[in-house]
Write a protein that binds this DNA or RNA. Structure first.
Length: 140
DNA sequence: TCAGTGACTCCCC
DNA sequence: CGGGGAGCCACTG
């Protein structure tokens, strides 16, 4: 067995799912009419600072995916997908679920942001310290 | 193996 | 409230 790469910690990989797979699993659970931010998703899969990677995963997923990718937005309550062309599609889908956009193109996160129920957190085996940090960081 | 990349976030002014 | 800039880190070729 190779004696590891020098320095940086690598992704588990033998630990079952990859980062991307975890992201998709979380996204699949977001209820209709609710949203998560990229940062929340990253936090929920155990890498609080990997929000950009979450975006990359969803980008590669493609707009035709069966998953509710439209329910992931940025921390400002706005859509980050205009840059890649799927902004109108995402907005249309969210409005179809009852979300309202204000004049600046943002939804009310306080009202629509979702947090998984305890049983899901358990199923995802989130570290207790992580859950505690989530409470602190997002005031959940 | 490794440097480049980006559907992000935060911080500072 | 808005814009600029610097981190961030899994993924990609």
């Amino acid at each position: 067995m190779r004696s590891s790469t020098a320095g940086k910690a690598r992704k588990p990989k033998t630990e079952g799912e990859s980062f991307a797979e975890k992201v998709l699993a979380v996204v699949a659970k977001i209820p209709r009419g609710k949203v998560l931010t990229y940062g929340q998703v990253a936090t929920l899969v155990g890498s609080p600072r990997a929000s950009r990677i979450v975006g990359g995963v969803l980008f590669r997923l493609g707009p035709d995916s069966r998953l509710p990718w439209q329910r992931v937005i940025n921390a400002q309550g706005k859509l980050s997908t205009y840059r890649v062309g799927s902004g109108p599609e995402q907005r249309r889908r969210l409005e179809a679920e009852g979300l309202k956009f204000n004049r600046e193109g943002a939804v009310d996160l306080k009202r629509h942001q979702w947090w998984p129920p305890e049983r899901l957190l358990k199923a995802w085996e989130l570290d207790e310290d992580l859950v505690a940090s989530i409470h602190r960081r997002f005031g959940w």
